[in-house]
Nucleic acid binder design. Sequence first.
DNA 1: TCTATCTTGGAATGGTCGTTCCAAGATAGG
DNA 2: CCTATCTTGGAACGACCATTCCAAGATAGA
Lengths: 212, 212
Amino acid sequence: MPDVKHFDPDQALDQVVELFWRRGAASTGVGDVVAATGLSRSSLYATFGGKQELYVAALRCYVERRSGPVLDALATDGRGIPAIAAFFDQLIQARCEGPYARWGCMVSNAHAGTAPPVAADGPGGEDAQVRQVLEQHHTALRGAMTAALQAARSRSQLRSGVDVDTSADVLALLAYGVNLRSRAGAPAADLRTTVTAALDSLRAPDPLVKES
Amino acid sequence: MPDVKHFDPDQALDQVVELFWRRGAASTGVGDVVAATGLSRSSLYATFGGKQELYVAALRCYVERRSGPVLDALATDGRGIPAIAAFFDQLIQARCEGPYARWGCMVSNAHAGTAPPVAADGPGGEDAQVRQVLEQHHTALRGAMTAALQAARSRSQLRSGVDVDTSADVLALLAYGVNLRSRAGAPAADLRTTVTAALDSLRAPDPLVKES
DNA sequence: TCTATCTTGGAATGGTCGTTCCAAGATAGG
DNA sequence: CCTATCTTGGAACGACCATTCCAAGATAGA
């Protein structure tokens, strides 16, 4: 009997993601969302709730549809260190060129744009859901790095003494740094040099087949 | 003949720094600044100009008075890797405990809270001054890391094959990651383990004095 | 086709934003 | 003490904010 929605919420959410990703939650008004999606305020509020819920939905959408596939690819890629290098190459390219150049990572941006977790800030805290998504994403990132490093270990690509778990943490923090600096305009070449150095520090030296 | 200011602008700026540092520029209103400093709007605007100029002044103040001394200490400390380890220890402690716990780093936060540098965004861009401070701080951070690593090299603390400049970049990006993750609530112990692993990957292995 | 039910456009609301303005207060050279 | 000049408190302003509301439109089962 009832009427049906005149738009696709998933597609609308994709546009909202791009807004919040580029400009951040605090600097983006509901009016901007209305203008970008073409929806009316009524549909927006009926479908997603208020601005905060819309932001959380967009952040979840980013994690699931943008980060998720890339991290899954890294986690299941069995090549080891080359897979990690490819991941960072792809990351730096996306952060510095193309339609999302200089937008950073929506999750990294959210780290800085979300209120700090103060004590006695029970699950009622407005940003508690945001922090939960941040934690979920961090776990996924760490997990993907760990899997890739385990593959590297099993292929004897790792220098002796390299610990897989803590090295995964180092690479994860490095990714946050890349995301942050790319948003400020860091040259892609610099970022590439830096992550290459980090990966080289994990790699086992070539079994000296050639020397010059 | 004229009247003289009834307050100390430098001290007021310190309070403003704490506001913008904790809550970010977009989420902090001029009313909040008035409440925190006790100044009137008139004095505020007469002394610092509008909100954006006030934020830039606060960011510069943070870089000069908070980051500056710590980076200088790192750059002139001649101990090498122990100096870098001490720097990160101090950083993580400040980021996770005490009065500024979970505030992150104001500069790192600014990376995410500032509009991306779009093309044809001449020096008139509103956030151009912010990005300039970001770049200045990044250069100082890199420089301090480089100096410390050079000290480490001259003390033969570095593994052979470690490049000082690119390793400095890696450590700088790592610091951004620490700042970001600490704001989201990352445990200090985890961060410490991670940076220790990163430093270990640079360190030359102990001249096997003992084996077990 | 009729109608109950949902959606949609857009006006309206109360609050907050950054900024301006001015009368009253404070200062220090004359 | 006087007064030119700056500072201060706080009211006032228009723009914008997130949110609500309602009449008009669209839908699909009966």
